[in-house]
Design a protein around this nucleic acid. Structure first.
Lengths: 166, 166
DNA sequence: GCTGAAATCGCCTAACG
DNA sequence: CGTTAGGCGATTTCAGC
């Protein structure tokens, strides 16, 4: 099982940094129950090994003027690998597209988009997404309201699993 | 327009902290072109005013053993406000559900879920989600691969808009 | 009001046991 | 992993624009 190489202290560090990525190292060390230097060494190692991919401030997009959030379900004409990667590349070039995931089933891709208002999203939709090569069909759904938005990983579930198999 | 209260330095601070939330204040100050004390004051103000909602380490969920990501499209029987909030509350109680958004159109909610493996997701689906009160119908799509995953807000778009209206 | 400069305090981060 | 210790960053204070 992946993640088994991590001891409880490492997992505790990850959980704390996911909850507050700007915590000082001494505070972090206090919380996980070791002194500061080994704590910092662990954090560096977790970063190098790829468990921690980065640190980000969570910005309120609505307060910044991005009032519209939309999910776009995209179907392509061709699912050849080169056509899939071409579409992925196209998505990376659109700043309004924040996330793009390839799915199984009828829908090929789901895109999470933001926009300042409905009209600028519409112009992106008709002027860019629907015109993109290989796009057969796009269904869009406006986000009426956000109900839950938790970062990353449910450490509670991870701990349960590890406890059960121990 | 929202976000107009912010001057270019504030927006620059937000963009830098979104890209690297653990940047030191002196580094941040250097990048935005002011000295450290006013920079720190600006950051505190942005936090208090809600532009910055928090800081999070981005954890690689696959490396931690969450190998499955699923989008679940949920339709409810009743869309009465009390039934909607009841379902939202239920979603908040499920750790495997990381995001929940209420949508317009045929689908009432879209859920982004993670799970250690397919079987544990299946047991969540059949044992929890499909049994939840008021749930009429759930369509699930496995994420084959992630194509793009950018945090938050496209500051490039924000700057363009502000430049255009200036 | 704002910023910047100086000084203090606390943290980061080596080196060593 | 802990302790020590030196250097750097964070944060307050105060002066200037």
């Amino acid at each position: 099982m992946a993640g088994a190489k991590l001891d409880p202290i490492d997992r505790h560090i990850l959980a704390e940094l996911q909850a507050d990525g700007r915590m000082t190292n001494v505070e972090l060390a206090k919380r996980v129950g070791i002194s500061a230097p080994p704590c910092l060494r662990r954090v560096r190692t977790l970063e190098e090994q790829g468990y921690i991919r980065g640190y980000h401030a969570e910005i309120d997009s609505r307060e910044l003027g991005f009032e519209v959030q939309v999910f776009a379900m995209v179907r392509l004409n061709s699912q050849a690998e080169s056509d899939l990667t071409a579409f992925e590349e196209r998505c990376r070039s659109w700043p309004l597209v924040r996330e793009c995931h390839m799915l199984n089933g009828e829908i090929d891709f789901i895109l999470k988009c933001v926009a300042p208002d409905l009209s600028s999203f519409q112009s992106f939709l008709t002027g860019e997404l629907l015109k993109a090569a290989n796009v057969a069909n796009v269904k869009t759904s406006l986000v009426i309201r956000g109900s839950k938005d938790e970062p990353g990983v449910p450490f509670e579930v991870l701990e349960e699993r590890i406890a059960r198999q121990a």
